[in-house]
Design a binder for these strands. Structure first.
Lengths: 229, 229
DNA sequence: GACGAATTAGACAAGAGTGTCTAAATTTAT
DNA sequence: ATAAATTTAGACACTCTTGTCTAATTCGTC
């Protein structure tokens, strides 16, 4: 038993560095090539690590894959909750604030590296690992959707929006915010900042035409009058 | 040179039967297993055909794959245009008619066998075959989106809707109609009829709250008053 | 500098998949 | 019925990948 500073929770420094570089490379390669198309040598090369090291760390290809998905789910969830915490509970300008939120959500949770990887792995391998992706469904959408819906409910209760069903409204909000990015997502591309802003702007305007109060409670500015360009 | 009824366009009958059963099976297997994960023996078994016959018909695995994607693109396009032709240009009840259209589009173009297969193949292999999927993008979304937008433009011009940009409105219409099916699509599932109807109903109601005329031009029935249940 | 743990390169066996070939069997049309 | 075309089963060479093993080397720590 070592009486040292690092009992057992902290393996040598280089060890951890290899670990993350393996995770990084494996995410990249599994995403690009699919599970069957990826091979361990590719991952090893991309990680700058020998093949044997990967086997030392993760045992076999399937365990590695599962570890990647769990890791991505966790990191994406963290990003989503961080973003939800920027939701405009007391908006100064509802349209501007919701657009900012939508852009934020897109950039930090959906278009970023982890978001793209996780989405593609779920789409590609979801049917092959039912229990793994059931876990994702619970941990991911199962927790984030209600959290977003709760924010919209609060906004409605405070008189900023006219919403019947906050769960439906939340899903529609995100669907609208992404409406113009679907084709790009399909092909695995990453939309430009401008495309994200465009889609969010159009989406939020439509959302507010549907759910905005005719006369805003707190502010006299008219949102829907800005329709042109 | 045969002077017969079938010069060279119509090979023997059984030949064609094999061909379609190969296409069917290959779509199924490529979709389920991804290109790299699929193997020819699997496809042959599923098609009820010997491996050699597949090589006789298509040359190699990659050519077979390309043939499948082209075939699916064509068949999906046909379905989409057929569905677009049912768009309510002169609606009796705008909400009811648009819901029917949305359900129709979902059932016949997105949730059906070909739609699911094509979507998954694009998501999974899109990055590996840029030119093939560029072709899809032109033939598919490139032609169907404008066609749908044109229908909405006509509806707006006739005084049924208040739309600034028909292209944006068309994309948002479909995004809203599918808003509640996204998670199911992600995992490769097929939504039930009821889920499709729910999503379409909620989507169309929101769409009409955003783009509907306050007082319908042709009809005095109020749509948005049906909010309950 | 010396020790122990981790990493590395390389060889290796085992298995799986592709694409070809052949000879027999089956289908289709005449 | 007969001839041509197609399909079939099976064997085959070839390649690629996985996962293991070993011996040498590097790294972090004392």
């Amino acid at each position: 038993m070592k009486t040292n500073v690092s009992p057992d929770t902290t393996p040598p420094r280089g060890h951890e560095a290899k670990r993350v570089s393996i995770m990084d490379a494996a995410g990249e390669v599994f995403c690009r090539e699919s599970f069957a198309g990826a091979n361990i040598d590719m991952i090893a090369a991309e990680a700058g690590v020998s093949r044997q090291t990967i086997y030392n760390h993760h045992g076999d290809k399937e365990k590695l894959f599962v570890a990647i998905v769990r890791d991505l789910t966790e990191r994406c969830n963290a990003g989503i909750f961080a973003t939800i915490s920027t939701f405009p509970d007391q908006p100064k300008d509802l349209e501007v604030d919701l657009i900012a939120f939508a852009v934020h959500m897109n950039r930090n949770c959906i278009c970023n590296r982890e978001g793209k990887f996780l989405r593609k792995l779920i789409q590609t391998e979801g049917e092959r690992y039912p229990e793994l992706f059931a876990e994702w469904r619970e941990q991911g959408p199962g927790r984030t959707w209600p959290a977003i819906a709760a924010r919209f409910a609060r906004l409605a209760h405070a008189g900023f929006l006219d919403i019947d069903d906050p769960d439906v409204a939340a899903r529609q909000f995100l669907a609208l915010a992404n409406a113009e990015l679907q084709t790009t997502f399909m092909l695995g591309g990453t939309p430009s900042d401008d495309e994200v802003l465009q889609s969010a702007t159009h989406g939020v305007r439509t959302f507010l035409r549907a759910f905005g109060k005719r006369q805003p409670a707190a502010d006299a500015q008219k949102h829907s009058a800005l329709a042109g360009a």
